[in-house]
């Protein structure tokens, strides 16, 4: 049972990560292959605050989110100068730099990581796995609801506009720098939350947890599920957390399979399994009433 609960916690954390990357890449069109760096910043900030500086978990939680959002905004500054393919390279570079910094900084425990990260306590007692499961599910649900709500507001419209055409967006009064930084900061805030949840569940973190491989893993989730949709991010995250646990060969060839998923999705179903224009999603809509074309165009 604990094992299933643990998988549920991982699925919740990766759901938050996938949704947060989806804000940046799916909504605002800023492709990042270094998302794990922000995951790591959140985890390490919270761990260092509680372990090294003696902060209470409930103080470390908002701080780790805030600090990760600030780091995200700083990374966002680089997107103002570099576009698309160059930005991808920059984010990969940032991922390696962050992992290296964690590895070589004694304050962060170096290659041995940080140990003894406390579980948050509820009414004076540390959460057990069962409680933590609901805690993580709660945060994942909050993330889904918040991003769903945000996706109906003008902020999403601004993101879509800069994704489609920066020059036209500017001509329509949408400030490209402002909304790129918003996208990076909001996305990073949720990645920071995921990092916090990860660190305080595992109790021990290593720089290797947040390497480029993890960034690829998150990207695979949203690509497979369908870039630009919340349902796709959730589906991709849950599927790729549970699949390796039930199909042993998947976990043995993890990176190979992620690579293949990206290649085949991009070639044959570029909008993912549940993307707005994917065959699979439209097929599920056949059974629904109403104008399918209008629906597909709406989101």
């Amino acid at each position: 049972m604990d094992y299933l609960m643990t998988l549920g916690i991982f699925a919740s954390i990766y759901t938050i990560l996938a949704i947060s990357l989806n804000i940046l890449t799916g909504y605002a069109g800023q492709v990042s292959l270094g998302h794990a760096a922000l995951f790591g910043v959140g985890a390490y900030t919270s761990a260092a605050l509680t372990v090294n500086l003696g902060f209470n978990y409930w103080a470390a939680l908002p701080l780790s989110i805030l600090i990760t959002a600030l780091v995200g905004a700083l990374i966002g500054l680089s997107s103002l100068r570099a576009h698309s393919d160059f930005l991808v390279l920059i984010t990969i570079g940032i991922n390696f730099v962050v992992v290296a910094l964690l590895k070589y900084t004694p304050f962060f425990g170096g290659p041995y990581g940080l140990l003894g990260i406390p579980r948050p306590s509820l009414f004076g007692e540390a959460m057990n796995t069962f409680e933590y499961f609901w805690y993580a599910v709660g945060w994942a649900s909050f993330t889904i609801l918040f991003v769903y709500w945000m996706s109906k507001k003008y902020i999403r419209t601004a993101f879509e506009a800069i994704k489609e055409d920066e020059e036209a967006a500017e001509a329509m009064t949408v400030s490209v720098p402002r909304f790129k930084i918003y996208a990076f900061a909001i996305s990073a805030a949720f990645a920071g939350l995921a990092g916090n949840l990860w660190a305080h569940y595992m109790g021990v973190i290593f720089p290797g947890n947040f390497s480029f491989d993890t960034s690829i893993e998150i990207m695979t989730m949203i690509v497979l599920g369908g870039i630009g949709t919340i349902r796709g991010a959730v589906f991709g995250a849950v599927l790729l957390v549970f699949l390796p646990e039930y199909l042993r060969f998947v976990s043995d060839y993890r990176m190979l399979i992620y690579g293949l998923i990206i290649v085949f999705t991009m070639l044959f179903i570029p909008s993912g399994l549940l993307g707005d224009n994917s065959i699979t999603w439209r097929w599920t809509r056949i059974f629904k009433k109403g104008d399918r074309v209008a629906k597909n165009n709406e989101n």
Binding site: K152, K153, Y154, I155, T157, V174, S175, R178, F179
Partner: peptide, 11 residues
């Protein structure tokens, strides 16, 4: 687009 009401108003 210049204010925080970008989070509260919907197209």
């Amino acid at each position: 687009y210049t204010r925080l009401s970008v989070f509260s108003h919907s197209p």
